[in-house]
């Protein structure tokens, strides 16, 4: 029991520290790309700024509703299933990939319900459409995941990482990695981590909003992004596999931040995509066919190798 509590504490600590660092990077990096300096206030180079903003949000009371509680719950529940490192996992099961994906879908749907209840109820909101599109980006991701599962012949995330001890899956599945990455990027963009959320109405709304609900929403968006990046690491980039004398945990952190920064830079250098027809076109005419082709090729290859012993 004590071990589990210790693990929970560790997981929470890691998540909070990373959210803080990511928020800080987010502020500074995006400002630097604008040729601005970013927040200078509250501490050296604005290190205390995320904390100040947190307290500012809390200081202004606003009604929270039941959805925010569920969002908070599910955004933490994901980490019970997804291992951050080999040891930091609460529940070990054989189907952890499926369970994690289910939690993820539930979380996004909850966010949709939450965005429907904003205090600016008279404002026009397109959040329903956005969430549907966001969910539709799961389809190419699922195809890519399916081909990974076929190769590694397991549904457990831990096993997938362990089976990459020789070479990473990215070498076997470059197309799958590409589609998965683009789908992650578009989800990242739709979630609006850069301060401008797509799930709520208003142009600059990411900087707005008050109360506990706002914090939880922001936290859960970070959790989704973390989940996506960790899953990408686990599936394609070897997870917590160490290289030579470098420990696996450090490798994972390095890979995590590289991907996060790349996503941020891509997000910043492209404009807002709120032309839905275009998003749908990208998804159904590019991502889904490519990932499907990848899946079919993998499937055919495995059948040819394992069933007919051709290769």
């Amino acid at each position: 029991m004590l071990i589990i509590l210790k693990k929970v504490f560790f997981i929470l600590a890691i998540l909070l520290v990373n959210v803080y660092i990511c928020e800080y990077i987010n502020n500074k990096l995006t400002a630097r790309m604008d040729l601005r300096r970013g927040y200078k206030i509250s501490g050296a180079k604005g290190i205390g700024f995320p904390l100040v903003r947190f307290f500012k949000y809390i200081s202004r009371s606003e009604k929270t509703n039941i959805w925010t509680f569920f969002i908070f719950l599910f955004s933490l529940l994901i980490w019970g299933v997804v291992p951050i490192t080999a040891n930091l996992i609460l529940i070990e099961m054989d189907y952890s990939l499926l369970v994690a994906l289910t939690f993820y879908i539930i979380l996004i749907i909850l966010l949709f319900f939450n965005s429907g209840r904003t205090s600016y109820s008279d404002a026009y909101s397109e959040s329903g459409k956005k969430v549907l599109i966001l969910l539709s980006f799961l389809i190419p991701a699922l195809f890519s995941i399916a081909s990974i599962v076929l190769i590694n012949k397991t549904l457990s995330l831990k096993e997938i990482v362990n089976s990459q001890h020789q070479y990473w899956n990215i070498i076997l599945q470059p197309l799958g990695f590409m589609t998965f990455f683009i789908s992650i990027f578009l989800q990242f963009k739709l979630l609006g981590i850069r301060g401008k959320s797509y799930l709520s109405p208003g142009a600059n709304i990411g900087k707005e909003g008050t109360g506990l609900g706002k914090i939880i929403e922001k936290f859960s968006i970070y959790m989704i992004v973390f989940f996506l990046i960790i899953i990408l690491n686990i599936l394609y980039l070897g997870g917590w596999q160490g290289i030579y004398i470098i420990r696996g945990e450090i490798m994972l952190a390095v890979k995590f931040y590289i991907i996060f920064v790349i996503l941020l830079l891509m997000d910043k250098s492209l404009g807002r995509i709120d032309s839905y027809s275009m998003l749908i076109r990208i998804n159904w005419k590019f991502l889904i066919p490519v990932s499907l082709v990848n899946f079919i090729v993998t499937f055919g290859f495995l059948i040819a190798r394992d069933v007919y012993n051709l290769i």
């Binding site: 300096r37 970013g38 100040v52 142009a203 600059n204 900087k207 707005e208």
Partner: peptide, 8 residues
Amino acid sequence: RFGVNFVS
């Protein structure tokens, strides 16, 4: 840089 934002 002074923490001032424009909101809508």
